[in-house]
Structures are given as structure tokens and as C-alpha cells.
Design a protein around this nucleic acid. Structure first.
Lengths: 149, 149
DNA sequence: AGCAACTAGTTGCTAAGCCAAGTAATAATT
DNA sequence: AATTATTACTTGGCTTAGCAACTAGTTGCT
């Protein structure tokens, strides 16, 4: 039964761990780049801002789906972003349950500040990977992702 | 400036995201396997138990270092595990600041229950990856990990 | 011996995650 | 038209994470 499954037990035991610890360290490192740039934002708040920067005025559920966060989490992150004056909630005219979330002027300028820090972070994170390797990595991760749920 | 950096901007923007979402989904899926097996444990609690199963009687700092959790988090997870009667704290005879954490009998039998569920989870997660690919994956992730901090 | 520096673990605060339950508005049924 | 189901979002509870400040015990220095 050596390799009938194609998966080495010890290696597979390790790799879940390796994925999680890398994700964790990336988040921490990214956070440090933000903090050092004097930006008062968490990485998760940044993720939402970034998504709004792609397409302004999305509803919370859309944001949740796209960022793989759940609805309550998005509610709370938007609460914080609104407190900080970076976004605002506008009730959807056609559906009064729904909010469109928009970036404020300040939100936009914050994004402009953050982008260079985030690029620097990426440069560091991927400095030892070629473009091909990065492609391979996302492919393998996606195949795991797609095998679950 | 096309590929002078060796890293495609869009691809690198995506991959942090891909790593995190895969880690997240793996944790969720693993949790489901535990819950469906009627096991009242979180994945993080399992990680600590698993580490104690490798080497019983470790101190909390050792556990923190090995599982890449921080000290306060480990304190709280051990609190819960002790409440559940799966582990116990024994003051180190040579250093009264320190605890040795030991599995109880019940802890051991819980581990025996959990293992099959975890193996099933791994089978599902890695079903579309060869042993080689799994090796490549952990290698690439480790290289990112090592580039940070 | 006495004081500084360090180490193990704890506690409090905030953010984020998941779950489950709740509200209010809209869509579907009959 | 009235009831039912669904949808968008919110709230509360519990766990994990990171940070900072704290206690208490240990080690090093002089």
C-alpha cells in the first residue's frame, strides 16, 4: 500500500500546516508594511477597500462572496471602514434591504497611499519565485481548493 | 519593465489571496470532518493535541513555537483542552514558571477517534495532487515563508 | 547578596472567523 | 390579497490571533 494512493502520509500531514503557516506569515508581513507606512488599516480592511477600488458601490453580500468572508464579518469590517470615514453605506433605491458601499474621497486617497506598501510587500514575498513558479503555486492551491466543499 | 522583476503584477496580487482562501477552506473542511464525526474539538485544538501526541509533556512556549501560534493563544487553547479534560498542566519541578502539558487518558482516546476523520479529510483535499505536486507545493510555500520576516 | 535582564505564562483589548438566531424587506405561492 | 419563502443585513456567542502590559520565577553580573 506504499503509494497506491499517490499521497505520502507524512507529507500530506505536513502540507496543510505549511499552507496555513505561510498564509499567516504573509498576513503578518503585509500588516507590518501597512503599519510601518503609518497606515491605520488591517489587512482584511484593506482587502475590502481593494475590492471596492475594483468596483465601487457593491453590496455587502457581493463583497463577502468575492473576498471569501462571511456576511457578519463583512458587516463589521464595513462598520469600521465607515467609522474611519473611508466608505459610506447608501441604501439601494430599488431594494431597501440592501446597501451599496461606496468609497469616500478619503477612502480613495488612503488606497493610493497603501498601494506602494502592498507592492513592496509582494516584492519581498515572491522574491525567490519565478513567474512560472507563482503560476504553478496558484494552480496547485486552486486544485486543492476545488476538491473541497 | 515587462518582466524585469520576474513577477507578473496581477498574478502576484492574486496569489496571496489564493493561499489564504485555500488555507481557510481547508480549515473549514477539516472542521466539518471533525464535527460530522461527533468530535467536539476545533481544528486549532486538534493541532495542539496532535503535537502533544508526538511528544507529551511539552511546555506551552514549545507548543507555541512548533504550531506557529503565539503564547497567549496557546494559553487559551490549553485552558479549553484542560476544561474538556483532554490535557493537564503539571508544574515543572525544575522551573516553577513552567508547565508541562500532558495528555490525559481521555485525551489519548480522543486522538484515536480523530485520526481517521483527519485522514479522510486529507484524502479529499489532496485527491487531485500527485505526491510530486504536493512536494512542489510545500517547497514553493516554504520559499515564500522563508522570504518573510 | 543584590540588582538587572530575561523567560514562562497570563490577562485585557481589538479584530476577525464561524454559527445560529433575528429583523426587515422582497419574491413566490396559492 | 394573504401567507410563505427567500434575501440582505445585523447581532450575540464563542474561538483564534496579534499586541501590549503584567506577574512571578530564573539567570547573570558585579
Amino acid at each position: 500500500m506504499l503509494s497506491t494512493l499517490g499521497i505520502n502520509e507524512k507529507r500530506s500531514a505536513l502540507s496543510g500546516f505549511v499552507i496555513e503557516r505561510t498564509a499567516k506569515r504573509m498576513k503578518q508581513a503585509c500588516q507590518q508594511y501597512l503599519t510601518q507606512a503609518g497606515i491605520d488599516l488591517t489587512v482584511d480592511q484593506w482587502v475590502i477597500l481593494q475590492e471596492l477600488n475594483q468596483l465601487d458601490g457593491q453590496g455587502q453580500n457581493e463583497l463577502a462572496r468575492k473576498t471569501f468572508k462571511d456576511a457578519p464579518t463583512v458587516t463589521r469590517i464595513i462598520d469600521l471602514l465607515c467609522q474611519k470615514g473611508l466608505t459610506k453605506r447608501i441604501v439601494a433605491p430599488d431594494d431597501r434591504r440592501k446597501f451599496h458601499i461606496f468609497l469616500t474621497q478619503e477612502g480613495r486617497s488612503t488606497i493610493a497611499e497603501v498601494l506602494p506598501a502592498v507592492r513592496q510587500f509582494r516584492l519581498q514575498a515572491y522574491q525567490n519565485l519565478s513567474d512560472d513558479e507563482l503560476h504553478t503555486l496558484t494552480d496547485l492551491l486552486d486544485r486543492i481548493f476545488d476538491s473541497l466543499l
